[in-house]
Design a protein around this nucleic acid. Sequence first.
DNA 1: GGGTATTTGTCCGTATGTATT
DNA 2: AAATACATACGGACAAATACC
Lengths: 281, 281
Amino acid sequence: MASPMYRQIAENLREQIESGALHPGQQLRTELELRDHYGASRNTVRDAIKWLTTLGLVETRPGQGTFVVRKIDPFVSTLTPDPKREPEEDSRLLLGPGEGETYRAEVARRLRTSDKTEPQVEILKASGLIASQLQVAEGTPVVSRHQKRYIDGTPWSLETSSYPMELVNRGARRLILAENIEEGTVRYLATCLDLQQVGYRDWITVRAPDGAEATFFNVPQDGRVGLYEIRRTAFDQNGIPMRLTVTLYPTDRNQFIVNVGEVPETDSVPASDEQGALAAG
Amino acid sequence: MASPMYRQIAENLREQIESGALHPGQQLRTELELRDHYGASRNTVRDAIKWLTTLGLVETRPGQGTFVVRKIDPFVSTLTPDPKREPEEDSRLLLGPGEGETYRAEVARRLRTSDKTEPQVEILKASGLIASQLQVAEGTPVVSRHQKRYIDGTPWSLETSSYPMELVNRGARRLILAENIEEGTVRYLATCLDLQQVGYRDWITVRAPDGAEATFFNVPQDGRVGLYEIRRTAFDQNGIPMRLTVTLYPTDRNQFIVNVGEVPETDSVPASDEQGALAAG
DNA sequence: GGGTATTTGTCCGTATGTATT
DNA sequence: AAATACATACGGACAAATACC
């Protein structure tokens, strides 16, 4: 009872949305109509809408109206290798998902289309994260390859792979070319330099996007939608880090799976809507 | 130039915060002082503060003031097993982190203290997620054990493990007792029923907390801080799901690591502040 | 405990700007 | 160009939470 009016209005609208009375994509009544309906001022109605906006339930479009958000069909990526993959020519080579054709196959299996831009290549001096993860001194030259990935035409991930410049000097010239390496850089480095990726470590965090990232992913500027930042450090057969890949994925459209030990196949994707009964009380 | 006044005020304050002129925990000037300082109305100043609030840079406390947020020292959990763990008596038994003593050891190694509540046990009929993951018919009885976990006194995770009731009927009576199973339920089920956990699948999503979850974790009600929801389905030696554990972790204080293949040890934790140079342009 | 000053929270009304149709 | 709808900005009033005496 003690809850303020704008919260009560928000709650009322929320129930309409979650009951389905207002379906995704549908336009709400205008602020002036809601003002009359609830007998409140327009500012109070706007406070209610702002609350629903930060909850991610509605979005406002200037000049158009307020709309119930359409939930994006999430895409599920597996961070561990596919156990049933054909053994490589070199059996020690360990390919992660998205490294080679696996990723495309996973997308196709879900009847969705993937697309990625040509890499944007940059040579810079290692600093901070890159230096520490690649275990090189600060200032050591590294090659960074940026790529944007799309699924069904919507922006899905931003990827930056960094390699020690030394690999290029040893013959991996294609790393500095701004073109896709079709067989995958992991295989390329294996054939070119006999550098075998025998393992990797993924470091998973969530943070707010900066302005440019929010623009690219088409998420709000104010940080309501977070980004997974997954840092993959890959190691060669000598235990030396050969690559750092940092990939950003919006949390509103991405999920991940980690398989450990012996796990059965999954063809069916469990309902991701299910909230489960998890009270904190 | 075209940016609205409240954004300019917010930007000015943001620079002061990020430059260190306003240090974490410090109180900002009051809304009335800021109003005079910027020559704006109090409501416009409040819009600026609200913007910074959703960005997670400041927090307001009624009756006290507005403060620069203190960042929480994140805790890092590893989702894959420790490769150097002593082999089990039964070598097929595969323990994940947090299952047994590993979790406590990981906390202690970081010089932090862990604590967890006695489990709250509940018997309910499987539905939705639980039924599909445990591969039982809807309505089948299951045992759910809820636990709250704390690190350094602050709430860290909410865990709900669900087991088919059949396991209890077959002799695993301690599952329905509201007390901790010190050796871990994985070992208990192995010794008690010869049920060996040979693998598990983790499903990682991020979602907004509900009201009770936000209260427990002491995060804002409006969903600015998301929760990792990690669903672990564990399989026995016959490939049958024996357990579903759903754990909730606030994204503002938790990070995860996944090790695949051969990876070297890490004693040093890389700087988590490092933003890296990842432009979306 | 009570009272008071301070500070943020809620709510109102109004005017004007900007984006879209 | 006009109409519509949300965005920004102002000013005022009172409520609620907190701190301090």
